[in-house]
Amino acid sequence: MKEWIVRLAAEIAPSGSEGRITSVLLDAVQDIADETHMDALGNAIATKRGEGPHVMIAAHMDEPGVMVIDIDDDGFLRVIPTGGLTASEAAFRQVAFTNGTVGLVCLEDGEKRPEQFEQLFVDIGAKHRQEAESRAFIGLGGVLGTGVADIGNGRLLGRALDNRVGCAIALHAFRELAQLGRYVSVVFTAQNAPGARAAQAAAFALEPDLAIVVDGVPASDVPGGKRTALKLGAGPAFKVMDAGTVAPLSVKQLIEDAADALGLTLQYEVWPGGRSDTGAIQLTREGILAAGISYPVHTAGAAEALVDLADVEATLRLLVAAVQTFGQ
């Protein structure tokens, strides 16, 4: 599992530019899936037909980033955020673009504090427009932050862990359930960071009987932590509500039963500021039974995150158990 997380987190996949990680993920399920494809919005989808109701497992594969929107005569770039990244998070950091170009995000001279992206520019060391245009183009996506570090005591820290961890969990769960002969699809969703824009398309196409979404959620066992009541290392959380969903009680019962059967303590997520793919899927077509299972992270939704591998393992076990409990 850890190897997969590290490998997936190495991919650069800002929202809308998920191309490369898509192939890595689909390659990883090719051997066991009946069919795999990429849809119009960039979701990577694999299905294995089998017994029981059709369950869709979803994890977003994109991460917040930036996109080049202007190149000036002196060879400097301007960027806009994709996803919820703020100017203050982006300023003074290295940006790695999907084409290999790297740059430094700088604040215009004379500006005191980075508050808006209009005040920022990216220096890629180009001497003039022409040179810049040979290494960057309008629409080029990039990400901030550094690679994954194993900080010991079973914890990892680094760029894109939210939600490559979820991708790794979904990947393993899909393989496991497919091997058990269940009718299961996995969707690695695109464009979650700008507001869950793609997951509903996959749900519309698959029409599953149940969807389970795996995503990171901020743990609040940190100084000033108030966003949720969750603790890192205390196990997976069932999503009671976020900005996009309120869980039906039947779904809550299903997850609780699965947790009980495993003897696993469940945390409860109430995160009014969060927006996972759960709500987008739930409101597709006539309504789809959808559950969110989250692993706690420190600083969700930001460029980098810190996770606990014990939570990750427990989330995987809960996910598999929930699917097996469903429809029995």
């Binding site: 919005l41 929107i69 955020p81 309008i138 793609a198 509903q200 398309a201 996959a202 196409a205």
Partner: peptide
């Protein structure tokens, strides 16, 4: 030319999310 700003939107913003997703 490329449109060089993030603000604003047009009908494609709604269209591409309809049904199974539209190119």
């Amino acid at each position: 030319q490329w449109r060089r700003v993030k603000g604003g939107s047009n009908d494609f913003g709604a269209i591409h999310r309809v049904g199974k997703g539209i190119v």
